[in-house]
Amino acid sequence: MQRAIPFEIFRYAVILGIVAISLVPTLWMVSMAFKPIAEWSAAGADLTWWPRNPTLDNFRFIFGQSSTDLIVALERTAGRPILASLLTATFGTLIAMTAGTAAAYGLSRFGQGGNLPLALIQLRLFPPMAVMIPVMIMWSFLGLIDNWFGLSLIYGIVTLPFAFWLMKTFFDDMPREIEDAALVEGCTRWRVFVRVTLPMMRPALASSALFVFILNWSDYLIALLLTTRDWATIPVYMASLSSSMTGQLYGAKAALGVIAAVPPIIMGIAIQKHLVRGLTFGALKE
């Protein structure tokens, strides 16, 4: 539809304005991450929007290199928390995707587990805070507090609804002729699933896994409750970058924030055409 020129100008003005506003907070953090201490500390009170002397000192600092300007040294570097985030998010994704894909196939093809869709939506509805007391009691009983497997397991359960619903809509969309042909050839149901269906669904599996990974990587509350030190994830560790001794280490926090923010942004843009499907539990497909 062709619209009038004034409308086009109006459209670009509004959109560019909103895009600018939506980018400012992120860019501010990026800017902080590359500022030397003199520009981000409270002492250097005059505010600069862009680093005058860009530096990688903040990144070096959180990985343990002591800075000449900053007297403090870190008791723990960011390496371990980054590893913890990566490992627990990956393993949680593995759990959610395995259970979710299998169940989605079972429901989509064989009509089994009819209670799951509703149960999983309800699982998504409840605040995690409302089931954490029993989980914390059970986890400490099982020795899973501050343990990578304990955190991964709960991640797997919390994101199971997304894995299940995404894969269910993908299986529902998939034509069954190929599977039927393989069945006629004499393959067992299991073989058809493993050898025919899953390889065909590789793109769908990859998109769903990335989606679930983003969710796991983004968690803060659960890690805050279930980890103390060894397996503290990035957001939990971030809080330790401020203390009464050092004050807020703005630059160091910003550098860590950039590291935490980059993977999900890249992954999210990579799977953007499936985002709607994932976020609305398949109610809307693209």
Binding site: L23, P25, W28, I214, Y220, A254
Partner: peptide, 22 residues
């Protein structure tokens, strides 16, 4: 522009909290 607009929702919420804290 569409992709750029989606960036905020992909920022880790804890990190977004820190951005706005600053």
């Amino acid at each position: 522009l569409y992709s750029t607009l989606l960036v905020p929702m992909m920022v880790v919420p804890a990190v977004a909290g820190y951005m706005f804290f600053m």
